[in-house]
Design a protein around this nucleic acid. Sequence first.
DNA 1: CGTGTCGTTGATCCTCGTCAAACGTTGTGG
DNA 2: CCACAACGTTTGACGAGGATCAACGACACG
Lengths: 234, 234
Amino acid sequence: MSENNTAPNHDCIDRNDTVFKHLTPEQKERINAEKNCNTYKKGAEIYHEGSRTNGMYCINAGVVKIYKTGIDGREQIIYFARPGDIIGYRSILSGDLACSSAKALQESVLCFVPGDLLIDLIRNNGDFALDVLQQSCKELGEANSYITDIAQKTVRERLAEVLIKLRENFGLNENNELQVSLTREELANIVGTATESVIRLLSEFKQDHLIDLKGRKIRILDSKKLEKISNAFG
Amino acid sequence: MSENNTAPNHDCIDRNDTVFKHLTPEQKERINAEKNCNTYKKGAEIYHEGSRTNGMYCINAGVVKIYKTGIDGREQIIYFARPGDIIGYRSILSGDLACSSAKALQESVLCFVPGDLLIDLIRNNGDFALDVLQQSCKELGEANSYITDIAQKTVRERLAEVLIKLRENFGLNENNELQVSLTREELANIVGTATESVIRLLSEFKQDHLIDLKGRKIRILDSKKLEKISNAFG
DNA sequence: CGTGTCGTTGATCCTCGTCAAACGTTGTGG
DNA sequence: CCACAACGTTTGACGAGGATCAACGACACG
């Protein structure tokens, strides 16, 4: 799918808030030499569950949803990756096949870094290894929290929590609207419920003046109460 | 919490199926010099959510449950650690506080390895770093599967799945009984449901001749059907 | 102007959580 | 050794939360 290298600003490697921050200039150069940047149109699949990803991807621009396909093809969204994040590294490092799929939510630019280069860098740069470990441990902690939430909270509580997390991750525009455009079904696939339930609860939240709805635009009116509904956060 | 070092066979470090397998003899010696082995009685807490674990633990003997405390104190069991496994490493590496608690299910022997030694070893031994990464990525993959399961499967399906996984992890004795002793409440806290629901479903399974019950002993009679009920596995 | 996708609403059903009560088991201390 | 407490197990009854099914409106797109 789409264009290739040589474009000017594929600079994920140079950002100093990413996992690459402790690489030497030479190591960054090696990545730049071997990486492969592509633009993915909205809805384009980056990799699919069960396949072998022979490397990892660094998000340069856009938003990517990571999800698993469960019973009867139902998606469960695990998380959203944003610029600076890395995805797909799990399967090379654990040696398994990919356990999730990745799809561009908007037009996105991703750089592919080959797996053997990744492993070589981890082996030879301890600080880089620690940064990758930090990333995977952070994801692990979040996953564990999510397990507890889904197992114990009601759909209503989880939806409120998801709205708050979306605000934290994507922020609000000048109208206090969430800066992500998700279908009701996608919202349901994060919360882990039926589309209709999300719709009904969103209307309730609207009636209670917690949010306002205009198509897919969700305006946050009362995050305090939303947080209270979500029952603390974890 | 009890005895201390110098005991003869605290050999987790020498097993070649653990995360320590690629350490040099010198590095193993350093761990042996700095580690601190303790026996934990049944029910003893090893570390608690929200605390700072300044290192990690290697399980030498016994079984340890890792769990999070959710709403109104309800436990959600994340997984069981067994001899050879390491626990508690997440929080040192991600820099956060512990996001889960650990408690001995049986009398267990654990060796504590200080965090700065761990980090030093990761930094200076690339293969060790890769092994730790592999471990955390494996856990991450399992956590993601679990999220999907809890979000999409029924309690009945999940209970069947848990029974199968317990068999895979702990095996059966000569009577085809699971080699773990769990209370109904603990089973419920793995599945993510109410104790009463577990009890009812176990009786159903018994009536359908899938299992047999004798107190906490669960004998597996028909794992094929259990697997079918669990709806494939992930 | 049809076709497809998404959003919304209503009606219905069932899984599962909660409450309550009774009984068995274990452990502790007098 | 008994009494009592604390805990775990089991069963029943009840109700609510939420999944499912069906139908329809809104909107975009070719």
